[in-house]
């Protein structure tokens, strides 16, 4: 096999993993801090993509449109998350997980219909600026330009999340709450506000993932289903609630898929799931430490 083809394919896989990481990091963070398996996380990702479309269409000029979309769409999604958290979710934290899954599943169905009402059933798409179209090659490796941008976005988010959880007070409290939330409450900290913030951060990441993926795909109803299944698998193989686990899981998922395509294209679909099964057989609680 052609070595440079393998390396290029690896890079494409890594860039795909970055989107998965951004989305599943949000899911994992919410799981860790709030103990809420948020099924409508995928809907927020879809809304992020649709809002990005609206912003980009409104701006007109592709480069400006994309920049505005990536900056503003996640904020809109975070706002949606805040409303849902304050009005509904904040009253339900004490319920058992099954109830929370049912509740968030219900919200997913509602948001799906909201998207249909607002944007209709048509496919949408965002045209990236000319500078981000086509292939870039460096050192004999070819990579779609937009995927190169994604490769950069992943580490930025990872570093930002690390700074947030380790260098800010709220982040530290959130991390503490993930380990022992009774203790945090006993210390007299207003857990409710910390939870709200953590949830909003999780939603922001879903929206960011949606906005970043928007120029590479057709923005359509149903994109929520695909991503939520993958994100839950990733969070599970990485270790529930562990953001670095989400990173490891995403890399495993993205790379097995893309390299699998090169090695055995007819059955490539199977590879990420096969990897998931192997990981879970070997380490049922995930690759990294689960906070549950």
């Amino acid at each position: 096999m052609d070595l440079s083809a393998l390396a290029s394919q690896l890079l494409v896989g890594l860039s795909r993993a970055m989107i998965l990481f951004i989305v599943s990091a949000g899911l994992s963070f919410v799981l860790g801090v709030l103990r809420v398996p948020n099924v409508f996380h995928g809907s927020l990702y879809m809304i992020g993509a649709f809002v990005a479309f609206t912003i980009a269409a409104w701006a007109g000029e592709p480069a400006l449109g994309l920049a505005l979309a990536i900056a503003a769409a996640p904020l809109v999604v975070a706002l949606v998350g805040l409303v849902v958290e304050r009005t509904l979710l904040s009253h339900l934290y004490q319920r058992e997980h099954l109830m929370l899954i049912l509740f968030t599943f219900g919200v997913m169905l509602i948001l799906n219909d909201v998207v249909k009402l607002v944007w209709g059933a048509d496919y949408r798409s965002i045209l990236p600026p000319a500078a981000l179209q086509g292939m870039a090659s460096a050192f004999g490796l070819a990579l779609p330009r937009y995927n190169a941008l994604l490769l950069g976005a992943g580490p930025v988010v990872a570093v930002a999340m690390w700074l947030f959880t380790h260098r800010t007070r709220v982040g530290t409290i959130a991390r503490a709450a993930a380990v022992d939330r009774e203790m945090v409450g006993v210390l007299g900290i207003d857990v409710s506000r910390v939870f709200a913030l953590a949830f909003v951060v999780g939603c922001y990441l879903a929206g960011l993932g949606g906005a970043l993926v928007a120029p590479t795909t057709s923005i359509s109803l149903g994109m929520d289903h695909t991503i939520i299944i993958e994100a839950f698998l990733i969070v599970t193989i990485g270790g529930l609630g562990n953001i670095w686990g989400a990173l490891v899981g995403s890399l495993l998922f993205g790379v097995t898929q893309s390299v699998g395509l090169l090695v055995w294209p007819q059955f490539a679909v199977v590879f990420p799931y096969l990897a998931t099964v192997i990981v879970l057989l070997a380490r049922p609680t995930g690759l990294l430490r689960s906070v549950w």
Binding site: R16, T226, S258
Partner: peptide, 12 residues
């Protein structure tokens, strides 16, 4: 429903 077909195309 596979959303991102870029890896598929680069492999082909």
């Amino acid at each position: 429903g596979e959303p991102d077909l870029v890896p598929y195309l680069t492999a082909i």
